[in-house]
């Protein structure tokens, strides 16, 4: 069975993916300007500071937009198609791409409250996804 493309952790992102493996959802907060950001970077995208802290996020958010995808963009998605591609606005503010899982795709709505869940895709890689809250 083909796997979807999976992240290769690097300097900016290793801590995030390690936490995901441990079923923890962490995001970065800037110690200088106080803004949260997603995705993880080596600097703050609001003020360019390198003083970033990892914070345990609430794991709560709401659907900003979504699309039910009927065509697999890669052989690794063949078995899960149709799937829900979504943008979720986290309670902390930043937006991220994810999948909405554990529900009928037709039931997904913009504004729907969702909460993080962890998909252990392989022994090394866990993807944070979201399900109805």
């Amino acid at each position: 069975m083909a796997l979807p493309p999976l992240p290769r952790p690097y300097q900016d992102t290793a801590a995030y993916w390690q936490a995901a493996r441990e079923h923890r959802f962490i995001i970065q907060k800037c110690s200088d300007c106080g803004e949260y950001q997603f995705y993880p970077r080596g600097v703050c995208s609001h003020c360019l500071s390198s003083a970033l802290d990892w914070q345990e996020a609430s794991g709560k958010g709401e659907v900003y937009s979504f699309s039910i995808n009927y065509r697999a963009p890669h052989p690794g998605f063949a078995e899960q198609t149709p799937f829900v591609l979504a943008l979720v606005t986290l309670a902390e503010g930043p937006r991220m791409m994810t999948n909405i899982v554990d529900c009928d795709p037709e039931a997904v709505k913009i504004g729907m409250a969702v909460t993080v869940t962890f998909d252990d895709v392989t022994e090394e890689v866990t993807l944070p996804k979201f399900r109805p809250a």
């Binding site: 796997l3 493309p5 999976l6 290769r8 992102t13 890669h74 899960q80 591609l85 791409m97 994810t98």
Partner: peptide, 18 residues
Amino acid sequence: SQSTEVFGPTQFEEPYGV
């Protein structure tokens, strides 16, 4: 796309089937 490993910021989109 047949890639199996994603390096760089797109690793926050491609694994979700963007």
